[in-house]
Design a protein around this nucleic acid. Sequence first.
DNA 1: ATTTAGTGGTTTATATATGGATCATAATGG
DNA 2: CCATTATGATCCATATATAAACCACTAAAT
Lengths: 112, 112
Amino acid sequence: MPKVSARAYSRYSLEAITLLGSLIRAARKERKMTAQELADRAGISRGLLQRIEKGDPKCELGATMEVATLVGVKLFDAEATSLTKHILQTEAKLALLPKSVRKKVKVADDDF
Amino acid sequence: MPKVSARAYSRYSLEAITLLGSLIRAARKERKMTAQELADRAGISRGLLQRIEKGDPKCELGATMEVATLVGVKLFDAEATSLTKHILQTEAKLALLPKSVRKKVKVADDDF
DNA sequence: ATTTAGTGGTTTATATATGGATCATAATGG
DNA sequence: CCATTATGATCCATATATAAACCACTAAAT
């Protein structure tokens, strides 16, 4: 069964994911946690944790975030309470923007 | 087919994911991009983009990161070149840590 | 006011990620 | 040096995320 069309990732995306994985692994070891331990606490299998630490893009966002949180790697280095505030701010900002983005029909793309 | 055991996410994880989604949506609208447009550029379906923007934890990490990158939402606010450096540093740090974490056998858990 | 495009929510079929088991290797602690 | 355990990798069955097509609704733009 030949793979038909893999997904394409930008350089930045791959690097960011790789970095995230490395940070998680480093953090886990600094905390002297076994891969199995961390996997258990996160409620995932050891195999999945391996892939996360390796930087595999094809992992659940939730699982990855959960693991990261458990070892203290925060994407947005802020407390949950602070995040809530941030979310609300963003939502408010969103409310100001048009509900739907309407494209000009005739005019050529002004993208470049 | 009853769902047996859903995955548990910490408060922080869910909030961080929600925030990420909101930031993406806001960024997309600021750039006056259609959901379909962004989905196409990211090589994903519009439905998936909706879930990402909504903050669904069950999405590919790669797809999410890709979309975020496309609209300029950086998890690690740094250039790719800088990320590489950061990765190398982390790897180097990792090399100093023990290859495997060994648990004490007899002694009781010192977790608390 | 009317038209049209964007959005949100479905459903279904398919691709695929995940869990679990297993094996080999490596490296730690005694 | 030895015993033990963490790790890395692979395989398979199954759960599930994804793409695609559809619908209804909303809200831009004329």
